[in-house]
């Protein structure tokens, strides 16, 4: 895979931050690292994502949503000329109870890309506890390739 240029990294960050609406904006994701090994993203603690009244236990669903989002990002980085991308399927194992108020760190990569399909894997842990993984997921994505890349549409057309 080609090295990721600083310009492309900035575009990617801009694309995520310029969305203005939707779940990714609500999750306040911060891209920490983008390399050929994958991407690492931070999700700050948010009490809205908890299931308990003390607001210390994250719902599994938000971890699934986080993996799905970051897989998308990993594919943007790894694959050139993608015009649309749709999640085909997703599997997530919840490895331990997600009880903490620490930020959540997710690492995801694309381990195989073909003309039509991308395969992804990722892990989630609380900041500072990389040895205690809380969830792990794999997914496949259907890609359509074309001249009008979704990436360009989103970086150029940042309406809000």
């Amino acid at each position: 895979m080609a090295e990721i240029t600083k310009e492309k990294m900035e575009q990617i960050a801009q694309m995520w931050n310029a969305r203005g609406k939707g779940l990714i904006t609500h999750m306040a994701l911060e891209i920490e690292e983008v390399s050929s090994d994958g991407v690492r993203v931070r999700m700050p603690f948010n009490p809205d994502f908890c299931v308990d009244s003390d607001q210390t236990l994250l719902h599994g669903g938000i971890l699934t949503a986080l993996l799905d989002s970051v897989f998308g990002l990993a594919n943007f980085v790894a694959i050139e000329g993608v015009s649309t991308m749709a999640t085909l399927d997703l599997r997530v194992d919840y490895l331990r109870a997600a009880r903490s108020r620490a930020d959540v760190i997710v690492h995801a990569h694309c381990f195989r890309k073909t003309r039509h399909i991308a395969f992804n894997a990722g892990s989630i842990w609380f900041d500072g506890h990389e040895d205690a993984e809380i969830a792990r997921g794999t997914a496949s994505f259907a890609l359509t390739r074309g001249d009008t890349s979704l990436f360009e549409a989103m970086t150029k057309g940042k309406a809000s």
Binding site: G61, I62, A65, L66
Partner: peptide, 9 residues
């Protein structure tokens, strides 16, 4: 809808 929201629901 975000796929993660569908899975969460």
């Amino acid at each position: 809808y975000h796929g993660g929201i569908i899975a969460s629901f």
